[in-house]
Design a protein around this nucleic acid. Sequence first.
DNA 1: TCTGGGGTCCTAGGACCC
DNA 2: TCTGGGGTCCTAGGACCC
Length: 414
Amino acid sequence: MASSPTILHADLDAFYASVEQLLHPHLRGRPIAVGGGVVLAASYEAKASGVQGGMSGWRAQQLCPGLTFVKGHFSEYQRLADQVMAVLGDFTPMVQRISIDEAFLDVSGSTHLFGPPAAIGHAIRARVRNEVGLPVSVGAARTKHLAKIASQVAKPDGLVVVHPDHELEFLHPLPVGLVWGIGPVTQQKLAQRGIHTIGQLAESPTEGLEHFLGRALGSKVGALAANRDHRAVQAPARAGSVGAQSAFGRRDPTPELLRSVLGHLADRVAGRLRAKQRAGRTVTVRVRFAGMRAITRSRTSREPVATTLTLTETAEELVLHALAAHPAETQISLLAISVSNLVDQPVLQLELPVLPDEAVRPGSPTGAARWAVDHSMDAVRRKFGKSAVGYASVALSRMSSVPDEFRELAEHEL
DNA sequence: TCTGGGGTCCTAGGACCC
DNA sequence: TCTGGGGTCCTAGGACCC
């Protein structure tokens, strides 16, 4: 059994906002929010007033009258985060990046070079600060879960090392919301039971809790407390689904709206699939009504799909089914398409004269024609950029509140 | 004045098979 | 002449994470 805290979790602080303050010195020390209609990231000065990511810009301004909104510099975020990851890689090859701005490290093989985990954490923070210019918090512990909690406790701009002999005394006073998997809904349900800390949760009879929560929780907390969390630091798995969504305020679901939004979303999703020579058997759509209630409809077929027009048509049919099931809902506020059950689909297979999933319809291009259209669009985009050709891209980018560059930052590796 | 976009995982019920 | 039980796949919904 391992006996030292050799798992590190490194997490950049208020990442997008910190980059803006790095690039624009006059913003340092001031409350800022990246984004406009919606807050994509808030600086710690803004968070102090209650501003949070995902909040509407209007609400953020109310909470923090001195708030400055800044346009995002998304390519800079990618560049600087990659630089930070390169620094982490200098300490160990065992780096698992879990999002643009955070990663786990297993430093068990590095201590003979760089000293104990606490010294490594210290060195990482110093190098990221000096060489990149950004604050990063680091947690060190025996397991990933504990290391992640430690980095949250370390924020902002700190280092917390949990020694194996003091794990329970570290955990027990902390709020339950720090446990991975306990979000606002579960937190509120637990609070109604008088459970606020991890210690109180550990002492509760888990079966009763799981019954009323409707989800497994006891095993997680038990594993956390007893240190049976044996997840290894490893390369992230390939994505199991690809999706895109667009929120557009309240609108009537006219055929024109459905066609243009779904065409745009299908174009993004199918384009990403083709770029990685993948395809998916299950198509899922999500429709959110004006009142924020959302429903999904899905369909699984034998043949995987990666063709823009086929995906558009399937999504349209599913959305119409979903709308028909809720005739009382007259307006919608979001549409989403997701493709899952992914399989590899090398180009060779796509070059069959007619793809198996492409039924020939009157007035509609055959499979071969669809393939040709997609691949010439893909080729033009590779050569001239993404905006060169597209589905109603101008109309849609006006409707969308979030730039495409931001979407790309959130994409997972296929 | 509303409430983003990319994903993962879990649960529950039904169909279907052996 | 009574109605097992396990496994797998599919669909829908929901919580959660960054």
